[in-house]
């Protein structure tokens, strides 16, 4: 198809390590900015929010990979693991800022987790990502076989919880978190066979079986 082929050709020349590098740079840069006044007079909250937002953006990017192949035949599959691992790293950094810089008290942390639904939801989302991060290596993929695929469907839940966490934490009804939630719901809906099937047929039946795999 017109656009997909040149894109796929270009993308094939991009090494995966460069995606890791590009993804990791903002983490250090934001921390440096926070420590040197670049994030405004309240850098702890700013850093916490920036890391959280990048995590959510990476999770959304990860959810786009399969629909891009299925519906427009742009193949970014080889970057999916890097995107997932980076997303997990940003969620962990987001959590660490909250624990180590923001609250700094086991008692405060625990009472927040059990008393505040948006924090409970965020923590559950983080826990969902835990086994995915631990099995994001070749050995686990081989070892777990088809189970790996099933396990990594936990991403769907984690991303959804992340977006709900964002919607709940802001004051009032704000557009930004609702747009993320909306986008995520749409991306998840594209995985439902009853929705995916008709859409693929509209796209042209010939491609139906081209890429049956992917999460």
């Amino acid at each position: 198809m017109g656009l997909a082929d040149p894109i796929n050709k270009t993308v094939r020349r991009v090494p995966v390590w460069s995606v890791y590098l590009m993804g990791a740079v903002p983490m250090g840069w934001l921390f440096y900015q926070g420590a040197t006044g670049g994030l405004g007079p309240e850098p702890i909250k700013a850093l916490e929010h920036r890391y959280g937002l990048i995590a959510l953006q990476l999770l959304v990017a990860g959810l786009c990979i399969t629909p891009l192949i299925r519906f427009v035949r742009i193949n970014l599959m080889r970057f999916r693991r890097a995107i997932g691992v980076l997303a997990f790293s940003y969620v962990a950094a987001h959590l660490l800022v909250w624990l180590v810089l923001d609250l700094r008290s086991i008692a405060l942390i625990w009472s927040d987790i059990v008393k505040r639904p948006y924090i409970t939801i965020g923590m559950v989302g983080f826990l969902c990502l835990q086994p995915l991060a631990m099995t994001s290596n070749n050995w686990s993929v081989r070892r777990l076989g088809p189970l790996w695929r099933k396990l990594h469907k936990l991403t769907y839940l984690a991303v959804l919880l992340g977006a709900v966490h964002f919607v709940m934490l802001v004051k009032g009804w704000q557009w930004e978190p609702l747009l993320y939630l909306g986008a995520i719901v749409c991306l998840l809906a594209l995985r439902i066979p009853a929705i995916q099937g008709p859409l693929l047929q509209v796209r042209g039946g010939a491609m139906k079986s081209a890429h049956p795999r992917g999460g």
């Binding site: 926070g34 420590a35 007079p41 309240e42 850093l47 810089l101 609250l103 700094r104």
Partner: peptide, 12 residues
């Protein structure tokens, strides 16, 4: 509470 202006390592 956290006093604004204390930087990245300010405590509550």
């Amino acid at each position: 509470e956290r006093m604004v202006g204390g930087g990245l390592f300010a405590s509550r």
